[in-house]
């Protein structure tokens, strides 16, 4: 079983996409699917940060890119 999650990625500019993940996927699994290193982002659910080993329990998330060059 898989399901769809709508993702907003904020990395200076904002992009959006929908990604399909396993029913019991964690945020970490989600980032791996998107090929995003977990050291470089915060995942926000309704504006609040979530622990990345937790199971995804929302169909709408924001990924905030916080590690940039410079």
């Amino acid at each position: 079983m898989s399901r769809k999650v709508h993702i907003t990625i904020q990395a200076g500019k904002i992009s959006e996409q929908t990604v399909e993940i396993a029913k019991d996927a964690t945020y970490e699994d989600l980032l791996n699917t998107l090929n995003i290193n977990q050291e470089t982002v915060l995942v926000l659910n309704g504006g609040n940060a979530v622990p990345l080993d937790g199971a995804v329990n929302s169909d709408k998330l924001t990924i905030l890119k916080v590690v940039t060059g410079g």
Partner: peptide, 17 residues
């Protein structure tokens, strides 16, 4: 670095990413 960002976020500091 990620925790510095989270600290800024939870304290609502006016910062730029």
């Amino acid at each position: 670095e990620k925790e510095v960002a989270l600290y800024a976020l939870v304290n609502s500091l006016p910062v730029d990413f």
